[in-house]
């Protein structure tokens, strides 16, 4: 699904290296988790993969379903099926949540050459999916993320993911700012989307999210590269001992 090879990235405006040769292979249907201390480059990886401005790739490649994606524009990558659930979902005043969702969905369908959904079809699907995430009709009408609580914003991200049905989902610290109940709801939403054709990359600080979204592989990232990979129990190890042992081992 997604193959990252020796990815080196620096900031565009200052010569500061953030990623130092990341290698990561995610096969279809797999759930990978990336953990790591602050400033290790986790969020940067998600931004570079989705095509945000401000970063320069100096070396390496990322192929998604056999296609080199680093040269593509963000909306092209999105249409190929790459989705990023934002750590801080952005507010767009005046634009209804539903309008935004429908514009996004139909843009992607159009670029894939699939017929667009009519208002009625769209409404039916969005209502059903929103219900599973306990998103009410009122929240669908409000402007995108404006005045949403932390939990509402994250649930809204998962709703977008459910609507857009991407092949590769990157979740950037989706658990941050969530209470236990909200986190469970989000995790359920993610689990409902797990399938043999869909892969996940879950970026988190804490093991507790991984109790609910059980990963196939856990990677520890530090200093802009992956220093250790293992099974789900690697996350527990971090939870119990912190990163210091792993970092010491790496150094």
């Amino acid at each position: 699904m997604l193959y990252i090879n020796n990815l080196n990235v620096e900031l565009e405006n200052e010569k500061k290296k953030i990623l130092n040769g990341v290698n990561l292979d995610i096969n279809a249907g797999e759930v990978h988790a990336i953990m790591g201390p602050n400033g290790s480059g986790k969020s940067t990886l998600s931004y570079v993969l989705s095509g945000k401005d401000g970063y320069r790739v100096t070396e390496g490649s990322a192929t998604f379903e056999g296609r080199e994606i680093l040269e593509l524009s963000p909306d092209e990558r999105a249409s190929l099926g790459l989705f990023l659930a934002f750590q801080y979902p952005v507010e767009i005043p005046g634009v209804g949540n539903m309008t935004f969702l429908r514009t996004a969905l139909n843009s992607q369908r159009k670029s894939r050459g699939v017929e667009e959904l009519s208002a009625a079809e769209f409404l039916k699907i969005v209502r059903e999916k929103a219900k599973n995430l306990k998103i009410d009709a009122e929240m669908l009408k409000r402007p995108v993320n404006v005045g949403f609580s932390g939990g509402e914003k994250k649930r809204n991200e998962i709703l977008q993911m459910a609507m857009l049905e991407p092949k590769m989902c990157i979740l950037d610290e989706t658990d941050s700012g969530l209470d236990v109940d909200a986190m469970k709801l989000v995790a359920e939403g993610v689990n409902a989307l797990r399938s043999k054709d869909r892969s996940f990359l879950v970026i988190t600080h804490y093991q507790r999210l991984l109790d609910h979204i059980v990963p196939d592989v856990v990677h520890i990232m530090a200093d802009g590269k992956i220093i250790k990979s293992g099974g789900a129990d690697l996350a527990l190890e971090v939870e119990n001992n912190g990163y210091s042992d792993l970092l010491a081992e790496y150094n």
Binding site: G51, D53, P74, D75, V90, I92, F100, A104, S107
Partner: peptide, 16 residues
């Protein structure tokens, strides 16, 4: 820029 990127990431093109 963040608003624009958010839209793009959801598949919405520049002018749109």
């Amino acid at each position: 820029d963040d608003q624009l990127f958010y839209c793009h990431q959801r598949g919405i093109g520049e002018e749109e």
